Amino acid sequence: MNVLLQVADTAGAACVFLGAAICLLGVVGMLKLPDVLSRSHAATKPQSLGLLVVLAGVALRLHSVMDLATLALIGFFQLLTGPVASHLVARSAYRTGQVERGDLLFDDLDAQLTEPGQEEGQGRRDSP
């Protein structure tokens, strides 16, 4: 049993180190990438994956059910809030003209913003 705990501790430490390295790569991407959309991608994807790997490493070291439930909630809320925040940053960058529209493969938001009868800056209003 003692050997099993040592293996779990070693695997947990490796997961924490690997998750930290993934998060570091996300930070490097945020510093090096040229535009807002690329930086938004680098801020969300590696950070979420890195945090989940770190949480898995910590879970290997902890053995309490309450601690594991807390780690699961942390992972859930990270996966819930990270992409939403990134989407809002990208959408506001698009609306303020910080996105080079010629570089986009698909521009579905342009059709929504330029509907007839709507001014720039107004959202869509769906009638009930």
Rank of each mutant, 00 (worst) to 15 (best):
G121H: 12
S48M: 15
S86C: 09
V54D: 10
V36W: 08
A90W: 05
S48Y: 01
Q47L: 05
R39V: 07
T114A: 04
G50R: 05
D110Y: 10
R95P: 03
L18M: 02
Q98S: 10
R124L: 15
K32A: 09
G29V: 02
T81M: 12
S64Y: 09
L18K: 01
Q78K: 03
L37K: 13
V54I: 15
A43Y: 06
G97D: 04
Q78F: 11
H41C: 09
L105K: 09
L109Y: 07
R101A: 11
L49D: 03
L4G: 15
L80S: 07
A85D: 00
A21S: 01
Q112V: 15
L113M: 09
H41R: 06
S48Q: 06
D103K: 13
R91L: 06
E119T: 07
M30G: 14
D110C: 03
G19W: 03
F17K: 01
L79F: 10
H87K: 14
F76K: 13
G82Y: 03
A43T: 04
Q122L: 07
R124V: 14
Q98A: 14
D9R: 12
T10P: 00
V54K: 10
D35Y: 08
L4K: 15
K45T: 14
S92T: 06
G50K: 00
F106A: 01
F106M: 03
L80C: 06
F17L: 14
A20F: 02
Q6M: 14
L25F: 12
G121K: 06
V7T: 12
V7Y: 06
M1S: 15
C15E: 11
M1R: 09
C23W: 10
V99A: 13
L55S: 00
A85N: 02
V99I: 13
L109S: 02
